[in-house]
Every structure is written in C-alpha cells, then in structure tokens.
Design a protein around this nucleic acid. Structure first.
Length: 201
DNA sequence: ATCAAGATTACCT
DNA sequence: GGTAATCTTGATA
C-alpha cells in the first residue's frame, strides 16, 4: 500500500513540489457516502503571490486567500465565475503565499460516482470518459469539493495524497499557464506528456 | 452601497 | 473560434 505524503513534502519550494505532484494519487475519504474517491494528478499550475500577479495572494493576505499564507500541506478552495470551485495544494512557508492548482486528473476509483455527478448518467461515451476530471472545476464537481473543504490539513485522514513513482523530467511538459490575464509568460504549468487526461495540450 | 473582475465551463456557429 | 452564465470577493465611497 502506498504511503501518505507528509508535511515535509509540501513545505518545499513551490516549483519543486509542483513537478513532484504529477503522478501522485489524490484521495478523498468522503464519510457522507463512505467511499475513498481516488484519481491520479496529471496536470497542475503553480502560483506565487510574492512575484506573480496572477496569484490570488499577490494583493496580500485576505479572508479568501489566508490559507495560502500558512505553511505547506493545506487545501485552498476558491469559488469563481459564479459557478465553479477550484482546489489547490498550499506549499512552502508562511511568507510567500504559494499554492498549486489541480488542473486535471485521471480517474482511478468509483467511475460511477464521478460519472453521475458530472453527467447525470453512468454510461459514458469515450469522449466523456476523458472529460470527467480534465479541468480544475470539473475535479471539484466530480469529487464534490466546495467551501466545506477549505483549509483541510492534507496530512490528516480526509483528503490527502499517496506516494507514487516520480515522473522523470523527459516525461513532463512545461508551458505557460491557462486562463489568466496577468503574468502570462511564466512557464509554471506542468503536465504528464503521455496522459490523455490533460485539459489542453 | 456599489462595482468590476474572475486560476471556468458548456454550448453555439 | 466566440460568449453567456452567475455570484463571491475585494476595493472604493
């Protein structure tokens, strides 16, 4: 059985943690339905409020972003566009306000639950199977992540990551981030080269 | 009290 | 390729 990632994993420097997140297994032990929902992380983006205008923490600490100013190992969930939640892994120290947006995953467990929540049905077309977790808000819809999960400690027993083999440099693609209007040239988006579950190639 | 923008998605042509 | 949907947050008054 794979081991849960510990505090020291998250407290490292942002971009190091970002690349190391690829391939790891995201687990949500949802007590409400008595299930352990699992998926493999295949795409992420890094944000750093100390130098990055696109980061929510660039303006300093606020009620919304305060968890990003904690030490690494917490979940930062935010609401946007009047509809969507997105989930991030907080990294680093208490000064910078750094976090990593979970952008796409490959479903591992409970396909039926994910399918029902995303498409209100369980018989999916091939295209829909790819479409279950390939976007930050899609992940939150399928996992049922919302304000209730804001600030969860990732070293506890509800939401956590499992150790997995490190993805080698030649299998990681680095690009500019998607869907932002500031600091658009920072090459802080990373995804697994061969994954078909990435949001955009 | 009011306002503009937003780390997106689904659906349209 | 373009855009409506929809509402919270943070800033300004």
């Amino acid at each position: 059985m794979n081991k849960k990632l510990k505090k020291d994993f998250y407290k490292r420097e942002l971009l190091t943690v970002a690349k190391d997140l690829l391939g790891k297994i995201f687990v949500f032990e949802d007590k409400r339905i008595n299930k352990k929902l699992k998926a493999k992380i295949v795409e992420i983006e890094a944000y750093d409020g100390s130098i990055d205008e696109a980061a929510h923490t660039f303006i300093g600490k606020t009620e919304r972003n305060k968890i990003m100013f904690e030490e690494g190992g917490f979940l930062y969930v935010y609401f946007t566009y009047g509809k969507h939640f997105c989930a991030n892994v907080v990294t680093g120290n208490k000064e910078q306000g750094t976090a990593i947006l979970l952008r796409a995953m490959e479903p591992i467990s409970d396909l039926k639950i994910f399918s029902e929540r995303r498409f209100k049905k369980t018989n999916l077309s091939e295209k829909e199977k790819i479409n279950i977790l390939n976007g930050p808000a899609k992940i939150c819809e399928a996992f049922n992540i919302n304000r209730d999960q804001y600030g969860i400690d990732l070293t506890a027993n509800e939401i956590y990551l499992l150790e997995a083999p490190k993805i080698s440099e030649e299998n990681i693609i680095t690009t500019k981030r998607i869907g932002i209007k500031k600091s658009i040239d920072l090459p802080w988006r990373f995804y697994i080269k061969d994954s078909q579950f990435v949001s955009r190639k």
